[in-house]
Design a protein around this nucleic acid. Structure first.
Lengths: 131, 131
DNA sequence: TTAATTACAGTAATTGTTACTATTATTGTT
DNA sequence: AACAATAATAGTAACAATTACTGTAATTAA
């Protein structure tokens, strides 16, 4: 049953995810971890990001932009996608609201709703200042 | 300024989107429209789907699955992604709930929230019956 | 019906991601 | 500490979704 083995590369990826707030793409993680492991492979980054996501130590965020983003913070929270600078920002939102819409959605739906994910769109503070 | 010209291919794509409920991928649209236009190109399908999305006559739905889905219904509504059969289903949800969470989100956020998109995950009715 | 321009088909290129393989690292056992 | 057993790696190839390019065809306005 494939016991998980330690790897320094994975540790480094985890550490980067834990310390950054920029919701990096796999490629951004790759670029960063490369500083510590100059010949790490992009495949290793992808494999570990997916692994971490699977075991609940990271979160994958799908955006309208091509590449998925990753978040080391697995506490339930939401994300904002700036349509101008294409950055993903954290967004605090009372979880009661989320639970409410999950319940509201379940009412007229023939199936089981296990979770939901809301992504907010608009213009971030920085981009507003610039314009 | 690139005035829009009529094309039978685009009309066919629009018509298919308007009549189907299955939230097709570009490739599914391609397969279908091919019956009417045997040598339509996949690029044409992509170009028109994006064009229709841009002018507000279609909606692009990003899912955890690779390919984007398209919806000819542009009335604001939500989607459910079945983690078993990977289908996308429509989900009715009182828009008041959506407006509420948009407002709640805007409160502690430095920026402008223009819209939000919630996707629900779980098991659809059909898949529950089968198991 | 012609001239201007957009759209097309077909194909090539790009991007994001996963799969494969031989080698290396980790770990539990002597 | 040395040794299997096995998971993880680097490097590369393959893949899937999408976009870009190019010469031709369709649409439209004059």
């Amino acid at each position: 049953m494939a016991t998980l083995k330690y790897s320094r590369q994975r540790e480094s990826i985890k550490h980067f995810l834990a310390t950054t707030k920029e919701h990096p793409t796999a490629d951004m993680v790759y670029t960063h971890v490369k500083e510590e492991f100059p010949n790490i492979s992009l495949g290793t980054v992808y494999r570990n990001l997916n692994l971490l996501t699977d075991i609940g130590e990271a979160m994958k965020i799908t955006t309208p932009d091509g590449a998925d983003r990753f978040d080391g913070c697995v506490q339930p929270h939401n994300h904002f996608f700036c349509t101008e600078c294409r950055r993903v920002l954290d967004l605090e939102l009372d979880m009661k609201n989320i639970e409410k819409i999950n319940k509201a959605a379940a009412e007229n739906f023939d199936g089981i709703i296990e979770s939901s994910n809301t992504i907010f769109y608009g213009k971030c503070g920085d981009c507003i200042k610039k314009s």
